[in-house]
């Protein structure tokens, strides 16, 4: 049963005061969504990025104000920021050398995502991988954060019309991919 607004407010206040049990409760609330989002968005190291995300959440919880839905959306917003950081860091150290032996191995993502219990997310990741980064970000934030389009526009610092268009094109692409996966 979802927590009442009063429940959430009380736990949030306790977490802000450093209460361990309250943190357990809050992490339970958001952790699956955060990791699911990171898996769907193809994070190379979803566990590591999730750890960084929670580190940010702990550091900035005192500035957060809102209910349960806003809390999940807030955690997803931070996860997106950390994912962008991780992508930038990865692109800086990327080496364009592929060991032929690696080509024989199963997809590393598949193994890790199965280990995380994110089989459905892994399936959707393969579809989103074929969209543009912006389209996939918008759809993933809609899915896991249940964010509205104005909220996504705010989080991604894009005009609402642009985000609306990205969602429309993303859904169209998704429809085509679902109809013809090959």
């Amino acid at each position: 049963m979802p927590p009442s607004d009063e429940d959430f407010a009380a736990r949030l206040a306790a977490a802000k005061a450093g209460d361990e049990l309250a943190w357990r409760w809050l992490f339970r609330l958001a952790s699956g969504r955060v990791v699911g989002f990171l898996v769907v968005r193809g994070a190379a190291d979803p566990e590591g990025v999730a750890g960084d995300t929670f580190l940010d959440m702990v550091r900035s919880i005192r500035r957060f104000d809102g209910g349960e839905r806003e809390f999940v959306a807030w955690s997803l917003t931070i996860a997106h920021r950390r994912l962008v950081d991780a992508r930038r860091a990865a692109s800086r150290r990327r080496e364009i050398v592929t060991d032929p032996a690696d080509l024989e191995q199963p997809d590393r993502h598949d193994v890790e995502e199965a280990a995380l219990g994110m089989v459905g997310a892994a399936r959707v990741r393969r579809l989103l991988d074929r969209l543009t980064i912006d389209q996939a970000d918008v759809l993933a934030l809609r899915i896991y954060g249940d964010l509205t389009l104005p909220e996504i526009a705010d989080r991604l610092s894009k005009p609402l019309t642009a985000v609306t268009s990205l969602q429309h094109r993303g859904l169209e692409a998704l429809r085509r991919l679902l109809a013809d996966p090959e």
Partner: peptide
Amino acid sequence: LRSEADGT
């Protein structure tokens, strides 16, 4: 997907 994430 939300259900999967919440139940992971």
